[in-house]
């Protein structure tokens, strides 16, 4: 069976949607994913080669059941239905937010960037009140938005823009190693003056990475910082020797006491 991927198929969906809902697939990256194909009882969604191929839709046979919309892990499949006429279209989107969206209520239809397209009436809600299910919301919008709608928002306001401020002058110092509280400036001083060859030596002396967290959080940044500050030497920096215990353990435990 033939089918078209991405925006190629959208024209067809547009055309066929005068007869009822059709799936609009907005998934064109090669993602290893195929539940839409599995979910489609009509066989209208086909991945041409392997599971990374973008799904191709055969709009002719699509019956608009919406199973693919509900299961798509990327929430990237929608339904477009122009059968109601009078310049309106119904768009069905997957929905997993907890805003109170009521059947018959008004909501915003938004595009892929979250821009407001239109305010529309919710004409269908399926899967509501069933945790774990992806809800399908159908919103009625002017036909010209039918292919653009990617979301429905009950929260009808926009985020305020962040304020622009004057650049801060000096970089404040901070603890590079959270546990031992080794300052960033101190660490860099040690790196640049200490002429350490290896990470273990740097750690031994700076104590960055020797704290209670066992270096979980600073060892990898310590490595990057070390390489960044000593770029002239192209070398393996030797990794830390790992010794038990890799998790802190009470001395009494280690000594064999129970409890």
């Amino acid at each position: 069976m033939q089918g078209k991927t991405g925006s190629e198929s959208w024209q067809e969906v547009w055309d066929k949607s005068v007869n009822g809902p059709r799936a609009l697939i907005d998934c064109w990256q090669e993602i290893p994913c195929d539940p839409c194909q599995e979910a489609c009882a009509q066989g209208s969604i086909v991945l041409s080669s392997g599971i990374c191929a973008p799904p191709a839709l055969h709009a002719e046979t699509c019956n608009g059941c919406g199973k693919c919309v509900a299961i798509c892990p990327g929430m990237a499949i929608f339904l477009v239905d122009r059968s109601i006429g009078s310049g309106l279209a119904r768009v069905t989107v997957p929905y997993e937010m907890r805003d109170e969206i009521r059947l018959g209520g008004e909501a915003w239809a938004v595009d892929g960037e979250g821009n407001y397209l239109a305010e529309g009436r919710i004409t269908r809600v399926s899967g509501a009140g069933r945790p774990g299910r992806t809800m399908l919301l159908t919103i009625e919008v002017p036909e010209e938005w039918a292919l653009k709608v990617r979301g429905v928002r009950g929260r009808r306001k926009l985020l305020e823009e962040p304020e622009e401020v004057e650049a801060i002058e000096a970089v404040e110092d901070f603890a590079f190693c959270r546990c031992e509280e080794i300052d960033y400036s101190r660490l860099r001083e040690i790196i640049t003056q200490g002429e350490f060859r290896s990470l273990p030596a740097l750690r031994r002396f700076s104590r960055a990475g020797l704290g209670y967290c066992q270096g979980r959080f600073c060892q990898s940044i310590l490595r990057s910082q070390f390489l960044a500050d000593c770029p002239e030497e192209d070398r393996e920096v030797e990794s830390f020797r790992v010794r038990a215990p890799v998790r802190p353990v009470k001395l009494s435990r280690l000594g064999g006491e129970d409890g």
Partner: peptide
């Protein structure tokens, strides 16, 4: 508060690794 500088700290990893929540 951290031992040396007495800076406020809060949970950082929530899975028992960072020890900030001790």
């Amino acid at each position: 508060l951290s031992p040396h500088k007495k800076e406020p700290r809060g949970a950082f990893c929530m899975i028992g690794r960072c020890t900030e929540c001790c």
